[in-house]
Design a binder for these strands. Structure first.
Lengths: 246, 246
DNA sequence: ATTATCATAATGGTTAGACCATTTATATCG
DNA sequence: CGATATAAATGGTCTAACCATTATGATAAT
């Protein structure tokens, strides 16, 4: 219920004030805060204390410091960057496993695609189909283009998230992809039938979205992710037994 | 692809070193770092610079500072706490609407409960049923206990998340609840049939979890959230038209 | 006139040393 | 033995200076 009181620290007060100003829109993205020596005077604190506050705000991802003349603290607004970092840290600290992440992805992709099926406009469908055409091209070119294929695959997923029109899903899915992508590179088998199956999955999903069949879209999306996951897990087992680690 | 180089800053180097030590297990949770004046000497930097590094580590959630004799920087390890904070910040800053949040919740609760249905142990079921019994008690007591009822309701949802055994879902769901709860208070109608329906929903969900019927569990959980959402939207409309805002 | 080079000043990055505030351990006294 | 005062350790803050980086404008070379 209650949090431990820790008001004593001056820099925390400064952090709170500037953070509130940003979140309330009094400071807009791109605005530059006054120079340290001026802020110092306004807050009536020492420069060291002010700088501690700036370090916290920087780590929160709310500002970015630029050097030199006309430099200073630039307001950055909030992005998914820090969430991604935190998730990556959790994975590295082994509080979260690839299995957890893959499982989470399955649920999220399912929901995203179901929403996309409900909301896709004809323009959205056109975009998806042009991406599918790109994917087909890369597929035909064979294994050398697998990386390009995967890139398009990811692009399709992110497009579906945008079509869902829900910013939370867009952010969350982006974070998941950023963190799961390194595993693709390491564990996804480089075999033609994998790409083949992947492409068929995508076609089916887009078709379900086009026809507005949200239930089927969800099912297909989850199946698609499951295929990915199964390949990765199999390969991970092999690699682990072979003594190779990521 | 490449990131902007920013090696110049000494405190960043210190942050990296200490962070690596923690993530590699050289520093264990609960360990206390040497006093600032000693660290300062070891790194051969000034105390101000060291303190900037400590602020960053603190904000990352990796250490916690204690005052007084035998105080210092205590290693905290990595938790999902910061993800929650950042997601909450994202929700506020992007001015995500209640609709977005409610919709996201629907998908997440569905996935969580489906997983719970697959994984619940007899002990889990016992816990859920005892929570249901509490809910029933509060329901019988009538409207005065609505707050208590909602509290138990939330507890049940969080228990289901734990039963899913996936830490990502646990922390995401917690964040969602923290951010959606204020709306409950404002917009949820205080009428007996709402609690009644809510209670029935919960019973159905627990039953589906008990019988391991994951498909039905997902469906029921989404339905449950939809009921909540519908009530809130209706009431929000009324309030908005009446000129009352949250 | 245009371009290249350089000097200047604004601004963040770092240092040194001092003092204040909080907390724990210890010594002292009843 | 217990309460209380004192001392010491440690984080929190301040002042004042200097270093490092960069945009800008002045100057010189073409």
């Amino acid at each position: 219920m209650f949090q431990k009181v820790r008001k004593n620290r001056i820099f925390q007060d400064v952090v709170d004030q500037i953070e509130a100003a940003i979140l309330d829109g009094k400071l807009k993205v791109g605005d530059i805060l006054p120079p340290e020596r001026e802020l110092r005077e306004r807050f009536e604190i020492s420069r060291g204390t002010l700088r501690e506050a700036l370090r916290v705000l920087e780590q929160k991802g709310l500002i970015e410091i630029r050097l030199g003349v006309n430099g200073g603290a630039v307001v950055k607004g909030v992005t998914t960057e820090k969430i991604s970092e935190n998730l990556a840290q959790l994975i590295r600290f082994q509080q979260v496993s690839l299995e957890h992440l893959a499982e989470f992805r399955e649920g999220v992709e399912g929901s995203v695609v179901a929403l996309a099926a409900e909301r896709a406009t004809p323009e959205d469908i056109t975009l998806l189909k042009s991406l599918l055409a790109q994917a087909l091209e890369h597929k035909e070119k064979g294994l050398d283009s697998q990386d390009a294929f995967i890139k398009v695959d990811e692009h399709i997923h992110q497009s579906l998230a945008r079509i869902s029109r829900n910013p939370i899903y867009i952010s969350i899915l982006q974070t998941v992809h950023e963190n799961i992508h390194p595993y693709f590179e390491s564990f996804l088998p480089r075999e033609p039938h994998v790409i083949e199956e992947n492409y068929r999955d995508l076609c089916n999903i887009v078709h379900a979205v086009e026809t507005g069949d949200d239930k089927n879209a969800r099912r297909l999306a989850r199946l698609h992710v499951q295929h990915f996951n199964r390949y990765m897990m199999q390969r991970k087992q092999l690699d682990t037994h072979g003594g190779i680690s990521i």
